[in-house]
């Protein structure tokens, strides 16, 4: 589904990613772990197409198409979803309006019929119920005044509504207490399916107890230093990142 080849990404002329190779297949869950500043979030942004994250070398193929040439909205339409580490507050835009515009935009992109208000409400109600999200979170402006847990749950709700092929979770565990973490992880797990792939970006092993990955990659100094199964995460937890960072020297 996703094939990253020799990816170099610069931000403000500073090279952050220095040659990433990664293959993710349908149905798989991958975790990228690494210390602060290793380039984890940069990878997420580069996949989602944020301005200022310049691909200087390499390729990103998503379902055999060149992702680098596509705008962020087209990538979303094609099935990429990035759950933000810090979801953005947008005062004055109700969450429902936002969700409806987003869903209808991706539906248009996918050549599906737009939903009217009734159909939309039905879908959203279904998802909020599944995810245990209170109705008032829909009426409030996007993320404004949301607690850390609410913001992350809102990200999962958007993911559920937009139904992406590849979900990228950027530090979804940051700022969550253990209960909130479980809720969010459950939300993600209910979305796991053979047609979908998940890329979990995280600093801590904690999240991976709840969203169990098939593969773990250690990112340090802009490169994947080693890859393995889920047991690699435990090893990391024990030894710390220092060893991997040194190995990169």
């Amino acid at each position: 589904m996703l094939h990253i080849k020799g990816l170099h990404v610069s931000v403000d002329d500073t090279e952050i990613l220095k040659g990433i190779d990664l293959i993710i297949k349908s149905g798989e869950t991958h975790a990228i772990m690494g210390p602060n500043g290793s380039g984890k979030s940069t990878l997420g942004y580069a996949l989602a197409g944020r301005d200022g994250y310049e691909v200087t070398r390499g390729e990103i193929l998503f379902k055999d198409h060149d992702l680098i040439e596509m705008s962020p909205e087209d990538r979303a339409g094609a099935g990429i979803f990035l759950a933000f580490q810090y979801p953005v507050e947008i005062p004055g835009v109700p969450n429902t309006t936002f969700l409806k515009e987003a869903l209808n935009s991706v539906r248009r992109y996918r050549g599906e019929e737009e939903l009217d208000a009734m159909e939309f409400v039905k879908i959203v109600r279904e998802k909020t119920k599944e995810l245990g999200i209170p109705d008032d979170m829909l009426k409030r402006p996007v993320n404004v005044g949301f607690s850390g847990g609410e913001k992350k749950r809102n990200e999962v709700l958007q993911m559920a509504v937009l139904n992406p092929a590849l979900a990228i979770l950027d530090e979804t565990d940051s700022g969550l207490d253990i209960d909130a973490l479980k809720v969010v992880a459950n939300g993600v797990n209910t979305l796991r399916s053979p047609e979908r792939a998940t890329l979990v970006i995280t600093h801590y092993q904690r999240l991976l107890e709840h969203i169990v990955p098939d593969f773990v990659h250690v990112l340090a100094k802009g490169k994947i230093q080693c890859s393995g199964g889920k047991e690699l995460a435990l090893e990391l937890e024990e030894k710390g990142y220092a060893e991997f960072a040194q190995a990169a020297e």
Binding site: R50, P72, E73, L82, P87, I90
Partner: peptide
């Protein structure tokens, strides 16, 4: 950042700006 957030959810640039 907000503009990117909206676009990353599939909302086209022009619509995102007007929102």
């Amino acid at each position: 950042e907000a503009l990117f957030y909206l676009r990353s959810r599939g909302i086209p640039d022009a619509l995102a700006r007007s929102l």
